[in-house]
Amino acid sequence: MDFRAIHDHLRAIDAPGLLGSDEPRPPSKEKKDKGRAGDPYLLIDPQLLPQFLHVCRDNPRLSFEMVMDITATDPKKDGEHFWINVQLISVRHKHRLALKCLLPKAHPVLPTCTTVHRTCQWHERECAEMFGITFVGHPDPRHILLPDDWIGFPMRKDYEFPREYHGISCE
């Protein structure tokens, strides 16, 4: 199925947490629209993301049995939201889907997706240490790449670099 068909099917079965969709479009001068490149994506409510993934996995026409990636994006330094980006792929039907969630920076908490896909563990651990996003219910919430005593969240736009770490100067 292509993106439009997937979207219509999800609307038809009334998937939980589906808020909207966005597709790339060419720029137009009359509408003063800069256009958008990239992939089409679905906008999901972050608090209902596991339920949504569950529907996507178990629906026989979609059968998104694999999560390729869960990442976050910090689009603006003084913005109010993170993006959570999820890439799904269906090996059986050979189609893929991009999901996005808007997560408020003031309270970056969402339920873990490891209950649906166990692959999400490492992705969520990286996401948690790089952006300071809490995945509630994660079975192993340690750091994955950074040292255990690392302070700060390096992938945030307002991150300040450490001046020294364990006696090693960073100037």
């Binding site: 950074l146 040292p147 690392w150 390096p154 991150y159 670099f161 450490p162 090693i168 100067s169 960073c170």
Partner: peptide
């Protein structure tokens, strides 16, 4: 590089 040592001569 927030975790990269800026030269091994610092260690």
């Amino acid at each position: 590089g927030y975790t990269v040592v800026k030269g091994v001569d610092r260690v």
